[in-house]
Design a protein around this nucleic acid. Structure first.
Length: 120
DNA sequence: CGTATGACGAGCC
DNA sequence: AGGCTCGCCATAC
């Protein structure tokens, strides 16, 4: 059933992109927004993950802020969980709780098979 | 339909 | 380097 009518919301687009983020890599809210065509919708991106339903296969923990740090630190438990999940994937954290975006940042174009971005 | 929220980003001091 | 403010966007009520 083509069903049609199934309009994809901004949230769904965020989920799809984040879902493509491979382990050991991270992406910033701002970059996700840019990929979606809304470089200034970084806030909406975070909101999308906030509305992320339980049981979803979206690696929300691979999404961090432009500072390379984990957001919603207020959530404590949630932030701690994200950091643990990232560390298990090989993501290193700075003493300030920040990661090296220049080393772990993931670029959707990599998945597209576009050379030039060598994570080396 | 208008207001308020929020897991952001960049600029300014 | 750290902290504060404004702006921007997409939903919820």
């Amino acid at each position: 059933m083509a069903g049609g009518g199934n309009r994809e919301t901004f949230y769904d687009r965020v989920y799809e992109l984040v879902r493509r983020c491979p382990p050991g890599r991270v992406i910033t809210y701002g970059h996700v927004a840019v990929e979606l065509g809304a470089p200034m919708a970084s806030r909406a991106v975070g909101y999308a993950l906030h509305n992320l339903p339980p049981g979803s296969d979206v690696p929300w923990w691979r999404v961090i802020n432009a500072s390379g740090a984990i957001s919603f630190k207020n959530r404590g438990a949630q932030a701690d969980l994200q950091r643990e999940l990232l560390e298990r994937e090989g993501i290193a954290f700075d003493l300030e709780g920040r990661t090296d975006l220049g080393r772990f940042r993931w670029w959707p174009q990599e998945d597209a098979g576009a050379p030039g971005t060598e994570p080396g």
